[in-house]
Simulated scan of single mutants.
Amino acid sequence: MEPITHNPSQLPGWNIDNDPDNDPTYPMRTRTPDDHKGYSWERPTQQPINIEVLHSNERPNVTAVFGTSVPPSGLSGVIRRFAFKYSENSYLHWLPLLFADRVNVVEGVLSDLAHGHVPNIFAEKGYPIEWKYDKKGLILKLAAFTAVVAGATVLLTRKKR
């Protein structure tokens, strides 16, 4: 196994797209409609839609293939449905989706507890590996989290008085 490096310039392929002569997307402003004449493809067969699939309101239809493992449900699903009412260039689309992800984590933990399973959050967050390869970073992360929780507790306690 190769050692983990914190210097990106040592990564294989680092900065490969820096050469404008080797970048097919550079510069986009000089593209013409004729550049796309050679692109021809048939849309893949539509995957059957047998669950709720959220998709951008900027697109006329659902993508040909999509994930089905986690359909929107619960409070996070309500938040996602709200987000998909807005354009992809809006904060009202992306920020609720980020929030819905966090809500979904809490829903998952509550679901585990309701089914008699106590989740091993420490392991599921990858902390054992981080402890093995980046002890200092993990200690700093946990110290910052502890400081935030302690600070919030102090603020809430003072507010009640």
Rank of each mutant, 00 (worst) to 15 (best):
N18T: 12
E2H: 09
N104R: 14
L142K: 10
P8H: 05
A100V: 07
N50P: 14
H115C: 08
G67A: 11
K159D: 08
E88S: 06
K135D: 14
P60F: 15
F145M: 12
R161A: 15
N104Y: 10
P20H: 08
R31V: 06
V103G: 13
R81V: 04
L98C: 15
Q46D: 06
S40D: 11
V106M: 15
N104F: 11
V105P: 05
T153D: 14
Y86I: 07
F122S: 10
P48H: 12
P60E: 09
A143W: 10
T45G: 00
F82I: 08
F66R: 04
P48G: 10
F145A: 12
S90W: 01
E88L: 09
G108R: 00
N61D: 15
P8D: 06
N120F: 02
N15I: 04
I129A: 09
A64R: 02
I121F: 08
Y86P: 02
D19L: 06
R59M: 12
F122D: 10
V148C: 09
K159A: 09
F99E: 13
E130F: 04
Q46A: 03
S69C: 13
L110R: 12
P119H: 00
Y133G: 08
E124H: 11
V62L: 03
T68Q: 09
S111C: 11
E58Q: 12
K141F: 00
G137M: 04
P119C: 00
F122L: 12
V62Q: 04
I49S: 15
F66W: 10
I79Y: 01
K160H: 10
E107V: 11
P20C: 08
D35A: 15
P24F: 03
R102W: 15
K160V: 05
D21T: 15
G38Q: 01
V70A: 12
Q47C: 02
K141L: 07
V148G: 14
W94C: 13
K160C: 02
Y91Q: 10
F82T: 06
I49Y: 13
F122P: 07
S9T: 03
L156N: 08
P60S: 10
G67W: 05
D23L: 03
A64Y: 02
E124L: 07
K37V: 03
N89I: 07
R59Y: 12
S90G: 07
K85L: 12
V105C: 12
D101E: 13
T32G: 08
